[in-house]
């Protein structure tokens, strides 16, 4: 599992390098473009993801202590929080689309090159991250089923541990995406 997480690190790491270079080259335009983002939604989503990381970590402790029902509940809360995150993301993106900000939109192409790059990176990086949130939620749903069927137990919880690790990675990536896109005005 960790080896896979390292490959994920390189995938997102590469994008962060691209971000760093373009931001270095177009500093002022990046800061201007970032004003379009809603810091409040970003902050709420950060807190939602951090809390979901807590609940999935707690679910592992619960199963280790032989409390499958509590564990099930905690994974359920994690998935619910993932859905909250995605709903927020949906509203955020649809607002962007409604003001004409989407890849290749005429509105966007009229902006200076730095802002086009900023929004390109914004859509690619948060989009790829949202995809990871969806995959993570599906994985956790499978884990819930395995807990309910008694496959994941007090003595055999590696599957849940791997699912939780993936979820934490998704959280860590967001921890870095959040200040880099939302907090640079």
């Amino acid at each position: 599992m960790w080896l896979f997480l390292f490959t994920e690190l390189i995938l997102f790491g590469g994008l962060f390098v691209v971000y760093a270079v373009y931001r270095f080259l177009h500093q002022a335009e990046f800061e201007l473009a970032a004003k379009e983002l809603d810091t409040l939604i970003g902050t709420i989503n950060t807190m939602v993801l951090l809390t979901s990381s807590l609940t999935v970590a707690l679910s592992l402790t619960a199963i280790q202590r032989g409390k499958p029902k509590l564990s099930l509940l905690l994974v359920g809360i994690t998935i619910a929080l993932a859905l909250v995150f995605l709903v927020n993301k949906y509203f955020e993106w649809s607002h962007k689309f409604s003001v004409g900000l989407y890849p290749q939109s005429p509105e966007l192409l009229n902006k200076p090159p730095g802002e086009i790059l900023y929004f390109g990176l914004y859509f690619v990086m948060t989009g790829l991250h949202a995809l990871h949130v969806i995959i993570g939620a599906v994985i956790l749903a499978v884990m819930m089923r395995l807990i309910a069927r008694g496959v994941i137990t007090k003595d055999s919880y590696v599957k849940l541990e791997a699912g939780a690790l993936y979820w934490h990675l998704v959280d860590i990536i967001w921890i870095f995406l959040f200040p880099l896109f939302y907090l640079i005005q």
Partner: peptide, 12 residues
Amino acid sequence: ASIKGLLVLNIF
């Protein structure tokens, strides 16, 4: 962000 990342990595 790095402190937060390390907390998640080390504890969670």
